[in-house]
Nucleic acid binder design. Structure first.
Lengths: 121, 121
DNA sequence: GTACCAAGTCACAAAATTCTGCGTACTTGA
DNA sequence: TCAAGTACGCAGAATTTTGTGACTTGGTAC
């Protein structure tokens, strides 16, 4: 898979204003959304297997703590990237999966992965 | 510009092992490389105009401090994304520009920007 | 002789992020 | 009765990230 755009094409786009300058760049908030020690890994695991329960995620992401997993999941849900489904059974069960918005992020990840495979030994 | 890959295609790739599981994902180190309050903005400015001198960057990124700019530039240089050229003149002059490796990141940024423009109001 | 420029460095302080260790409420199985 | 699992919440500590203000070096302008 080829990069979808050259540097020169990108520069042209910048000229058109689709990427606006200084403080209003649409890239920054996306990267911020993915910051945090665990978020990417959570999305990655949900991409491999979905849905996943709290305890399953915890095992996969060992040595993550309860607190960290809870807050990361909450933030990802607030950003609309994952869906939380609660089943009122005994014992309680909660399932997490990617939303469409979250799935649409995957081509981006793939582009990043391609770059990573080229440049990271 | 369409996303270069669907969720299903991505999942297939995962199956092939090109994206390896748990702790060896090639996406994570890339996102980590771009973390930090200023790095993305520095790359962005260098994409708009290049080369740029330390003082020019500082003005563009106001209110960044010397320390922050220095460390961010150092890390970006260590990661091979930008090039630092020092001219031993009086007064001294240093110029920063993107490397090929850095430029190759731009299609990724564009993909992210597309997602951002779709999903961020 | 005082001040300024460039591109930083240094020691430290403040703020944000992450972790630790506990506690909750409920039930099942031995 | 006792431990174990499920899905968390909370207070405070530790760690990491970010910011502050002064200082450097050698020349040039006032």
């Amino acid at each position: 898979m080829k990069p979808s755009m050259t540097y020169e094409e990108f520069q042209e786009k910048v000229g058109t204003g689709i990427l606006t300058q200084n403080g209003n760049c649409p890239v920054t908030p996306v990267v911020q959304m993915l910051q945090g020690k665990w978020k990417l890994q959570i999305i990655y695991e949900l991409c491999i297997q979905s849905p996943l329960r709290f305890g399953q995620l915890k095992k996969l992401l060992t040595p993550i703590t309860n607190t960290m997993l809870t807050t990361a999941l909450k933030e990802l849900e607030a950003d609309g990237l994952i869906r939380r489904e609660q089943f009122n059974e005994i014992p309680p069960r909660v399932e997490y999966s990617l939303t469409e918005k979250g799935k649409d992020l995957l081509p981006v990840f793939y582009a990043i992965a391609q770059w990573g495979l080229t440049y990271i030994p």
